[in-house]
Design a protein around this nucleic acid. Structure first.
Lengths: 354, 354
DNA sequence: TATTAGCACTCGGCCATAATGAGTGCTAAT
DNA sequence: ATTAGCACTCATTATGGCCGAGTGCTAATA
């Protein structure tokens, strides 16, 4: 009669407990209401009585998977509960993308030519599909492949360095020089640099090509000057960009605009460094990553979860995408969506930069 | 004894009525609470009794400057009231910018080199200073002056058209051509176009230069082809961009997150066309423009006001900036701020494009 | 021994009621 | 024309009662 199952706080759940926990969390995620034993049993036509469920709930509460917002109020999941739920999802989740129903409008993406528009569109799409807010950390430019270099005089001591990538993206950078160069010089430099750098990714250029070129003989033009300019321009390419879209979706979620949570939201919008930090961590880990509630280690942000994934160019991790929502997020939909989108982005970028 | 001042709904206010109306609106703007006769008289140490104020309030209500949210609840301004208030402000407002205390960090702006970053910074700054949301409609590219044109081959049938402006801004555009051109051809074209277009603003080029050039003799190169490419590229320069920053400021204002208003906010964020329309109207009117409440002729947007101003390059109106906030906005601060910022932008852009 | 029925108890939500207090409109006195 | 006085209004707040959904415990049951 005595229920003595709970000996330690960390014992594994038996099968029935696990499935009931999952069902409870599912119920809470979909309805947003505390789930109580009686109506729960009724709604799911369980073969056990409410009392049994109560007992199980009691155990689950001791084990810290559930909690009561107040006495006699049904149970809601704790972060640990969500974590359990998400992990089960991940265990059973088929990463092979088969019978995928999510409609990532790949066509819409492929029609875009400017890379930065692609990033915008993907972020927008991800927020649209998920109905939460979406984030994208764009790739470091290090992995774009050079097609052509053009130098253009601006002022006496300023040159505009234009780098055209294989994908037709145009990066520009002002470079300040000390000595005078003529327009003809610049033209020769452009030709030289284009010839030497074309076909290499920027990181390769930084790491190897410059060194090699400096050791080569090159008659006719002032090679050093050309290399100086290029090196200066290439050295400090901007930080990866952070796109955030769909904040308005979060405003539509009642629990997110409740007094205290609104503050979390504000922090997310205002202090982009928080997100940048999180996304940079994601960038460093292959595959999907979920952060639930307090697992987002930011004082200012509470009651929020993130599902994020890194993406690659070739087999090098270069960026990350993610979805932000309330802890009570529809993980079951969002996890595959983010996973899938990540793969689409990988495929797309890989294709486009080869 | 009988108060028979109100004969028509549009009679002008006498001095005392006007000053009391202004004070009431000021009080409401700063506190956000309904203002009632007794405490109002007390707070402002008026030389009249609450009863007198009540009588005046009664008149002002008949004249539709004030209204009662409900019986026995003090008065709050109507849109007409705000309009009166703002107009008085504008009347007495000194446009000469003397003894200005607003800290628009001009230095921060001048340090930026990329024009699009400048736009971003200005918008951000305007939202920061006003504590509301800020909008900026960027100038049409029509008014930027060409410094140099570079054509670069991308594919067999694609050319990248690069236009460098006098300010060092780089605009790029993919152009698809039918016949084949060699790299040497493109080089010649680039030289030709740079020579002919340099120093002209894009709108001049569109309107006059092309026509002139087509009638000129030009030995040696396939002038027509070059002009076709340029005309194609220049013809459809993108829509002016719309920056919105500081939405988070609006989330901090209690009355903006009240259930129904939140919807207005969402509309503003989601449906950028609304704002674009408003800003485009502003662009067409010189100087400052205020839209109060219903004057924003958009069903979806309610309870919001906008203060906006157009800015110029030289003496041609090219863009607009603005601030969005609740109807109960601190017009007294925002109006000069927007006015001043508009002038700074004008000055800045004019200098930079001459 | 695990499950369940039964029951006392809890507590948020809802409703009605009442008290409070800031405010108004009207009237008569100044 | 202004104001004092007064009756009246009404949002807000507090109070208490009740309902319903929920729990925890215990004893009965399969």
């Amino acid at each position: 009669m005595a229920r003595d199952k709970v000996i330690t706080k960390d014992r594994p759940l038996d099968e029935r407990e696990a499935s009931i926990l999952q069902a409870i969390i599912y119920e809470y995620i979909t309805t947003g209401k505390n789930v109580g034993s009686r109506s729960f049993v009724h709604k799911y036509s369980l073969a056990v009585s409410p009392a049994t469920v109560r007992n199980i709930m009691y155990d689950l509460e001791s084990l810290e998977y559930l909690r009561q917002p107040h006495k006699s109020a049904g149970r809601i999941p704790t972060d640990k509960g969500y974590r359990f739920y998400v992990n089960s999802l991940l265990d059973s989740y088929d990463y092979s993308m088969k019978d995928r129903e999510i409609s990532v409008k790949e066509e819409a993406i492929k029609r875009e030519v400017q890379l930065d528009k692609i990033f915008y569109v993907i972020t927008k799409m991800l927020s649209g599909e998920s109905h939460y807010a979406a984030v994208m950390l764009t790739p470091k430019f290090d992995f774009t492949v050079v097609k052509r270099v053009v130098l253009v005089p601006l002022d006496n001591d300023e040159i505009l360095f234009i780098l055209i990538t294989r994908t037709g993206m145009v990066l520009t950078k002002k470079v300040v020089i000390s000595s005078n160069v003529t327009q003809d010089d610049l033209h020769a430099y452009s030709k030289y640099l284009t010839g030497e750098l074309c076909g290499y990714a920027i990181h390769e250029i930084k790491e190897q090509i410059f060194d090699r070129l400096r050791n080569e003989q090159m008659p006719g033009i002032d090679k050093e000057m050309a290399l100086d300019i290029a090196q200066l321009a290439v050295s400090e390419y901007e930080e990866p960009n952070l796109y955030i879209e769909g904040i308005e979706n979060l405003l539509k979620i009642p629990e997110m605009v409740e007094e205290d949570r609104l503050f979390s939201l504000l922090s997310i919008i205002e202090d982009r460094e928080i997100l940048r930090r999180i996304m940079t961590q994601t960038l460093e880990t292959e595959g999907i990553r979920t952060l639930i509630g307090h697992e987002i280690d930011e004082e200012k942000v509470r009651g929020c979860s993130m599902v994020s994934a890194s993406y690659k160019i070739g087999n090098k991790l270069v960026g990350a995408i993610g979805v932000i929502g309330p802890t009570r997020m529809d993980y079951e939909k969002v996890v595959p969506l983010v996973d899938y989108t990540g793969k689409v982005v990988t495929e797309l970028l890989t294709k486009v930069s080869k």
